[in-house]
Design a protein around this nucleic acid. Structure first.
Lengths: 199, 199
DNA sequence: ACTAAGTGGAGGAAATCCCTCCGTTCCTTG
DNA sequence: CAAGGAACGGAGGGATTTCCTCCACTTAGT
């Protein structure tokens, strides 16, 4: 494969991740090509179908999440609290909210390697959270899956819901959510949210 | 206005609320008419544009939320905890998640009465939450608006994201969120979430 | 029973999105 | 540095979805 072609391919995957995150799993493919600064044909040549593109995104994202969880587990000895916070922040940054449909909708036709990656990631994240529960940072009456789902729900595509406001809002909501996950209450960073006119 | 026509109009508003909640603010109007058991023409006769329909939904929903907040304030003396929980449950039931775009996207062209209703509801809910903060049920470092937004985010349309699983998931996530809002930690109902294959 | 208000849904118009095709560009290798 | 082929871009026809009008028919109300 030609070097520049490979680079474009990766650019496409990155663009797809952003566009999926911003506009949902159904975003027009043209928008992805445009964001990648690439012709629509290039997209189709690399990923004949939307699913294949989504799977490519899933592969890299799942790998990243897994790596984050591994690192989290490593850091658990020293500073579990920091490890947890860093993990969540990074996962939020990845905004896998829009990815869920691709991983769930057609569970059966999921390519084996993606499915495998999914299981692996799930297992590692579960380990990590169980560890946090052992240490007493996360309440016991919560299933790891729920935590992931909560983060996913809170980081789902906004579709211009509130534009600027959201930038500060989501991290705040995540923090509240995290506080709700603790056996004790946890402090919150000060609200940056402007007294907007929303609602 | 003829009696049966009025009834159909209300049916349409109810149907619109459900469909908007299920499929988002962009749901096809045909789907709404179908759910109301009514021809598409009837919808257009009553609501010439999508916005007018959305505004009608907003009017009734805002009024309901306001009434809930008023009741919450009333019950605050006896049983603030129960009042809060009942309020949240009811608001979750209303699923105003999908309504937000209609109230935010074109803030300027919002019909005066809707805008007014919005302000009124906002004020009452804010009062309610401030009261809860005074009583020590809700942490002080959170803005009422954020709470509403959190609930809205967690109750946004799922679009078949996980179907059954979600039914149990959302209330659980709300509970975690509420726990995160408390100065202390709060207990959680037991997880009903099946060990699904999701993610 | 009469009338006017109200209804349903077919179907053309419009918008969106998909995806192929082919002339052009630019890596790469010798 | 030139030749060959890999890779590109984007126009545009086709398919799909959604909109929304139009009019023959139905029904509430007096």
């Amino acid at each position: 494969m030609r070097a520049d072609a490979l680079e474009r391919r990766n650019t496409l995957i990155k663009a797809a991740r952003v566009v999926f995150a911003d506009r949902g799993h159904d975003a027009p493919l043209d928008a992805i090509a445009a964001r990648a600064g690439v012709g629509i044909a290039t997209l189709y040549r690399n990923f004949p179908s939307r699913d294949e593109l989504a799977h490519a995104v899933a592969r890299t994202t799942l790998a990243e999440v897994r790596e984050l969880a591994v690192r989290g587990l490593d850091d658990c000895g020293d500073d579990p609290e920091g490890a947890w916070r860093r993990f969540v922040d990074a996962v939020v940054e990845l905004r896998m909210g829009a990815l869920v449909p691709a991983l769930v909708n057609s569970l059966d036709e999921l390519p084996p390697d993606v499915r495998e990656s999914r299981e692996l990631t799930k297992a590692t994240v579960t380990d990590f959270i169980h560890r946090l529960q052992d240490v007493g940072l996360v309440r016991e009456d919560v299933v790891p899956l729920e935590i992931i789902m909560g983060i996913a729900m809170l980081t789902r595509p906004h579709v211009l819901m509130f534009e600027d406001a959201t930038a500060n809002l989501v991290p705040r909501l995540i923090t509240v959510f995290l506080a709700g996950l603790r056996p004790d209450g946890a402090a919150l960073p000060p609200p940056i949210l402007p007294e907007s006119d929303v609602l």
